[in-house]
């Protein structure tokens, strides 16, 4: 299983008001709120923790096939801007984040080997094509033999000649940034 999440910070600033009454309390635990409010850049920390929760949520849904909306159930610990853990249902996942002044990206993977790409585009089709190209090169397949489809609960899956491949895939797209990752 693999999960990743990217946040276009310019779009996040426009789409959400993290200082809105009730916003932090709905999403973040008390200790997460403290991390945010005591940080040098609370805006950045809000979205760093959010991307950690989202990436782990995506990986969790891949494992458990059940969607839900309860960000507080995913509890973050932050070691530094690039490393943290997220705990849910007694299981702790290690996350790796990349913080730029334009975007924040977090990835979690149970598999040691995976391929991650981050890029620029606001078109979903570009992301899908880039993913299939990278995947075909990585596996030595013909890109034209591959299809990308989302299953009933929205998890992306890669098919070769209409046969489901077992690689875990995670796609993330926000504003002008996209990222995808897949396991070996």
């Amino acid at each position: 299983m693999i999960g990743n999440d990217i946040i276009d910070l310019q779009l996040a600033a426009h789409q959400s008001d993290w200082q809105r009454r009730g916003f932090l309390e709905k999403i973040f635990t008390k200790s997460e709120q403290e991390i945010i409010l005591n940080s040098r850049n609370p805006f950045q920390t809000v979205w760093l923790l959010w991307s950690m929760k989202e990436s782990v949520y995506k990986a969790f849904v891949q494992q458990h096939f059940r969607r839900f909306f309860n960000p507080k159930k995913l509890r973050c610990r932050l070691f530094d801007v690039n490393r943290g853990t997220v705990r849910i249902n007694g299981i702790e996942y290690s996350t790796r984040s990349q913080v730029d002044n334009k975007f924040i990206h977090t990835i979690v993977s149970a598999d040691a080997f995976f391929l991650l790409r981050i890029g620029n585009s606001n078109r979903q089709e570009d992301v899908y094509q880039s993913l299939l190209l990278a995947f075909s090169k990585h596996c030595g397949f013909q890109q034209t033999d591959l299809q990308l489809k989302k299953n009933a609960i929205g998890i992306p899956k890669i098919y070769k000649d209409n046969i489901l491949l077992k690689n875990s895939v995670s796609i993330s797209h926000h504003g002008n940034y996209w990222a995808f990752a897949f396991t070996n």
Binding site: Q15, R20, G22, F23, I27, E54, F69, H174
Partner: peptide, 11 residues
């Protein structure tokens, strides 16, 4: 709807 905006819907 962006998942972060789902919080706004709830609020």
């Amino acid at each position: 709807i962006n998942s972060a905006n789902l919080v706004d819907v709830v609020l």
